[in-house]
Design a protein around this nucleic acid. Structure first.
Lengths: 155, 155
DNA sequence: ATAATTATAGTCAAAGAAGGTCAAAAGAGG
DNA sequence: CCTCTTTTGACCTTCTTTGACTATAATTAT
């Protein structure tokens, strides 16, 4: 693994798995010490790798007995999950968030790796040769349509 | 050996062979130092000798822990077929022709039915909310990129 | 009760660490 | 010479790491 953030990401995902695949609760300072980094690096890891788009929910509490709890979004109902993603996409979506959503669909086994790559290619910045407000709108349109198709072809 | 670019090309190909013939991951700056050249020369080598057409795919990441990964892809007659489709697409393609091309890929077993549906959804008229000369241009751009991905995401 | 202290977590911007782009300069071949 | 390829370097973009400062909760002292 190439850098601290990736390592911590893997570690946290492992913790989630080990505890039944749903949730994990950590002490920020404790993890930071374990990996010998500053505490705020945990915030960075969470902000870049455990977002809604990735399919996670994060709660936390400060002060004595504080914690950070990462919960994996329920994906038992595919249609619910995909509807959730469509809501996140809305009328516009950045490339970064699109990537996260596509990755989440792959990790939740709604699409294959090849399908993920195809969808990614279709919504890349260089592919959609458009200026900025429109590009994000178009990307959202494509993604929503693609998700609809995925939804159908699941049945 | 004639020049630095050729030498680096050979070196990288050797690395791929040594590691099982599939893939190699490098640090740009490290290779540049080894051959005493500027880092951007690596980009030149990659752009001129490790393209899709050459049968390679390249991924990279910037920032701490960054890397460049070159993967060799099997290239039989399929690449010829897909290159042909890309030529057909050119700078613009109607929805009808796009449908035909997608259908053809399915019939030739380069994509699954689900992949076909996904690609179709991505290039539909209603998805690409654009007026006519631009819509066909955009559709072509998406299709060409997707075909590139299909070309190298074969495992 | 209230205030002070301690224990956590959050934010944000700067610094650092890669890789990418582009065009000018240099070199090679015809 | 002229053209095509290669080499170089200045500048750009993206991702990560770090730390000072802030916000909030629990505990302890007054």
């Amino acid at each position: 693994m190439r850098n601290m953030s990736d390592i911590i990401e893997q570690y946290l995902k492992q913790l989630i798995q080990d505890s039944g695949g749903e949730v994990v609760e950590i002490k920020r300072a404790h993890i930071a010490e374990k990996f010998d980094c500053v505490p705020s690096q945990l915030n960075y890891v969470i902000k870049t790798r455990f977002t809604n788009e990735h399919g996670y929910t994060v709660e936390s509490k400060r002060g004595g007995g504080g914690y950070i709890r990462i919960t994996k979004v329920e994906t038992h109902s595919k249609s619910e999950y995909l509807a959730h993603l469509k809501r996140l996409i809305g009328d516009g979506v950045s490339e970064q968030n699109a990537n996260r959503i596509i990755q989440s669909m792959f990790e939740n086994e709604v699409i294959t790796i090849k399908e993920a790559k195809i969808i990614n290619a279709a919504v890349e910045r260089e592919t959609l040769m458009l200026e900025l407000p429109y590009r994000d709108t178009l990307r959202a349109s494509i993604l929503r349509r693609v998700i609809d198709v995925i939804l159908y072809s699941e049945e």
